[in-house]
Design a protein around this nucleic acid. Structure first.
Lengths: 214, 214
DNA sequence: GAAAAATCGTACTGTAGAGTACGAAAATGC
DNA sequence: GCATTTTCGTACTCTACAGTACGATTTTTC
């Protein structure tokens, strides 16, 4: 009757298994984001871990399932942060700038670039994965923005329009300057100053394009 | 002395070789764009062609070289069309709409989507290729647009700004509504009406954002 | 029609990598 | 300490596919 945790009947082993699973996912994510699906080998992952192949397979019974797990965790990191409080004051510019900075920062990070390349490159082979990624990362951001835009449009701060489309235009303005070059490898990253400047400019153009008629 | 063509010493064989080379590139492009680099097999290409592997290797001595040739031809198709005459009349909207329609049409076509996925997915494995693609397709379009914008800004039709950046913003507005969903496989293509509508909207927003100050 | 070049068919080599098998060695629980 | 679970190390199977070899057949040239 001295069971310390009511949720987990056995204590130490379960914890170690979680740790181990996480360690595997860390190594796997690193490799998938760096080298793509085909360029990643299970043997390589096992080697980097220092463990044996049998152990790896006992956690993830196939490469595809490991890949799915990596993707799930990688997009979770994206979707768990965009919540920024847009209060309904008259001046939405600063709040939008903050959101855009965060967005540009994420998309231009090695992790963001690798994730985009991976998802797009494998969208044909793993159609489910493309949909899951879209819904859990970009669409979520767009919906949050759209909800705020809807209110801003109702109160006349922005010109009336489809708020979801407006969100698409804003995020697109954010990525306009660097996304293509980052994904093709022509650019290697952005400095914090560049991130700030591009966010500032995106918001400026957006507000001008969606300014309410006088 | 009855050599018909002065440029080609032997006539018939050379022509057939060109044809054959093109046929190989057709099949290979189809497969690379559809299944990606790793998903494409040389044996499969030879099989589809109906020819033998020896013949295939006599044209392209390795998979990588075949891939490079496919990429080169695929981007050529892109770069050989964007030249639209933007005359310097006061109203640039119709000309921009034409360009944007063409751009959106290309990027949303199966060919365009496949090419983007391919280049981005393999940018890490073939860094040269990413650069070549960027320079021969998107950058070329941007430069053409930028040249026109520079004049339009000088004559006061557009607000003064960095013309290259302006071109990036316009193309980004063009792709804002569909590019992400197309690349992730959530969307499967655009109807001509959608292409037209998105081009129209992109130009409208662009001109509002870059309208000269009164 | 004969020589030369290209193509075909097919069998082969070599390698890489996914997934399996299994006994030995730790770690964990009680 | 003893049983159980997990991990390790290593060797193995199987399959896919890039690239080679080569003699037989067709096509082109003159």
């Amino acid at each position: 009757m001295q069971c310390s945790s009511p949720t987990k009947p056995t204590g130490r082993r379960e914890a170690r298994k979680e740790e181990r699973r996480d360690a595997i996912l860390d190594v796997a994510a690193q490799s998938f984001l760096e080298h793509g699906y085909a360029g990643t080998t299970m043997s390589g992952i096992a080697g980097t871990l220092g463990g044996s192949k049998g152990t790896l397979w006992s956690y993830f019974p196939s490469k595809e399932l490991l890949f799915a797990a990596v993707l799930d965790r990688a997009t979770r990191a994206f979707r768990e942060e965009i919540e920024v409080t847009l209060n309904e004051s008259e001046d939405i510019a600063p709040a939008l700038r903050t959101i855009c900075e965060s967005l540009i920062g994420k998309m231009s990070s090695p992790h963001g670039v690798g994730l985009h390349r991976l998802v797009m490159g494998e969208a044909k082979r793993f159609p489910e994965m493309g949909r899951i990624f879209y819904e859990s990362a970009p669409e979520r951001t767009l919906k949050i923005l759209a909800a705020h835009f809807e209110k801003a449009m109702a109160s006349g701060i922005l010109a009336p329009a489809d708020p979801f489309h407006a969100a698409q235009y804003l995020t697109s303005l954010c990525t306009a300057r660097s996304h293509m070059r980052l994904l093709t490898g022509v650019l290697d990253g952005l400095s914090p100053d560049e991130v700030r400047e591009q966010a500032h400019r995106a918001v400026e153009l957006f507000l001008r394009a969606f300014a309410p008629a006088d």
